[in-house]
Design a protein around this nucleic acid. Structure first.
Length: 482
DNA sequence: TGGGGTTAT
DNA sequence: ATAACCC
């Protein structure tokens, strides 16, 4: 692993060190004390539900690549290394390397602002995500070699549940090796490590595995990134960003309150997005402490019981959501945004482009999409962001032709898409679109479902439910005559 | 704001 | 089909 000190700290504030250490609880305290119980009788250890005996706290790592698109570009073209580099999509610099950040370029800055701040900025176009997507999956696959339970978050982040791997290594430890156990990377809040504390030992082993993961990413793929090790996804994600770039941090349980209190606003809590932040602000909730102490009953009335209970737990650093293996993608989509599209012919041309790329991707994947969707964004001065969509099943004879390069699959699919288009857009009236997107989803493996097998009865096209005419599946798809 | 993704309702 | 969340 690259020396931590080499990376440089840049503009990232070390909020943690500025925090009041007193709130950390007793560093190095023993965990022999009884686990506190919730009213329901379920024991909790810092956000982790413990089924029986209190022996199953998880070890989770969050791996976060440094300025991922810029790294991929610098690997593609090494001459870019050392120069301030921005990745451009339309008129935005969506990400940039650390050279550029030092010169004042920020993520999602407009090209104009970025060039103004940094005239030497080198820009590369990043609208085609192909190489980023490919590298992204290489990272996930590398991590899956350590443990198969890997959850992707975007193209540049992964969670891995290390619990089992850590426990195996811990049991393999010979006497004497335990006392030689050391942490890899930073310990959040400079907390003391207690090797008599089994939770500390597990997390240290987690930090060792995290270091091995980053080492493998660098040696095999040439990529650097950060890692955070903690007892749940929320805390792992928050702690991974404490030392950037190319560094790692482990959070010991006694410092979890310091970590979440280091957030300046509830909007910084992963899981609390734009809308929820606005609704929380309307209730006078701004800080994590505000959310912790707000009436649960009122919060449930305002946000619904599901969101309320989930985010209030998050505010205490509690997150029992599992690391869900992502596996292959659930959908493939391609989109293009533009200033104006106001004719059907124009739309058709753009749709054809999007579809052509998608068919290549879906062909490489091997699975077959059974649903197609068209998404548009209409121009409106204020209300941005809102999109409309129409979807329908892909006719089975089209699906069958998908893998075979022989037949023209474009024509029938473009026909379907244009029907969906006219279903959304009254082409006899003037219109102004700013985005078109095509999505292929409902992917199914081409399993040879044999009669009498589970697959047979789970395959709608084969099982009796589809013959009976009374389908038990919700059919919200737009009907399109073929 | 871009070009993607996911799950819940 | 939309709305929320994530990057």
């Amino acid at each position: 692993v690259e020396p931590e000190e080499e990376a440089g700290r840049d503009e990232e504030e070390d909020a943690a060190k500025a925090m009041d250490r007193a709130e950390a609880g007793e560093a190095g305290c023993s965990r022999d004390a009884p686990v506190p119980e919730e009213p329901g009788g379920v024991p909790w250890v810092h956000g982790q539900v413990v089924p029986e005996g209190g022996s199953s706290s998880r070890v989770i790592v969050h791996v976060d690549l440094d300025c991922f698109y810029a790294q991929v570009e610098m690997i593609s073209n090494p001459e870019l290394k050392g120069k301030p580099l921005g990745v451009q999509q339309k008129y935005l610099v969506v990400t940039c390397n650390y050279e550029a950040r030092k010169l004042g370029v920020k993520k999602l800055m407009t090209v104009r602002d970025a060039k103004e701040k940094c005239p030497q900025l080198v820009l590369v176009n990043g609208e085609d995500l192909t190489r980023y997507r490919e590298m992204s999956y290489k990272v996930t696959e590398l991590l899956e070699e350590f443990s198969p339970v890997v959850e992707r978050l975007g193209f540049d982040e992964n969670f891995v549940d290390l619990t089992e791997m850590v426990e195996k290594r811990r049991q393999q430890l010979q006497s004497g090796e335990l006392s030689a156990l050391t942490v890899w990377g930073h310990v959040y809040n400079d907390q003391y490590v207690n090797l008599h504390d089994i939770l500390h030992v597990r997390l240290l082993i987690g930090s060792q595995i995290a270091a091995e993961m980053r080492e493998a990413m660098y040696n095999q793929l040439g990529l650097t990134g950060c890692a955070g090790v903690a007892s749940n996804k929320l805390l792992a994600k928050l702690v991974s960003g404490v030392f950037k770039p190319n560094q790692q941090t482990v959070l010991l349980p006694e410092s979890s309150q310091v970590l979440i209190q280091s957030l300046n606003h509830v909007k910084e809590m992963p899981g609390i997005g734009y809308k929820t932040t606005k609704r929380l602000e309307a209730l006078g909730i701004r800080s994590v402490h505000d959310l912790q102490t707000f009436s649960s009953k009122i919060l449930e009335k305002e946000l619904g019981i599901s969101v309320a209970q989930r985010i209030q737990k998050l505010s205490f650093g509690e997150d029992n959501s599992p690391v869900t293996p992502s596996g292959p993608p659930q959908s493939f989509s391609e989109e293009d945004s533009f200033k104006k599209c106001s004719s059907e012919v124009e739309a058709k041309n753009k749709i054809e482009e999007l579809l052509a790329s998608l068919l290549n991707r879906v062909c490489q994947d091997g699975r077959k999409p059974h649903t197609i969707r068209l998404i548009i964004r209409r121009y409106s001065p204020e209300n941005h962001c809102s999109r409309e969509s129409r979807q329908c099943p892909i006719p089975s004879h089209v699906i069958q032709k998908l893998g075979t390069g022989n037949y023209d699959v474009m024509t029938p699919m473009v026909d379907i898409l244009m029907k969906l288009f006219r279903n959304m857009v009254n082409v006899k009236m003037p219109f102004h679109l700013t985005l078109l997107s095509v999505c292929l989803c409902n992917l199914k493996a081409l399993t040879t479902a044999k009669k009498g097998t589970i697959d047979y009865y789970l395959t709608p096209s084969l099982s009796t439910t589809s013959h009976s005419g009374k389908r038990s599946f919700k059919m919200k798809d737009t009907h399109v005559e073929d």
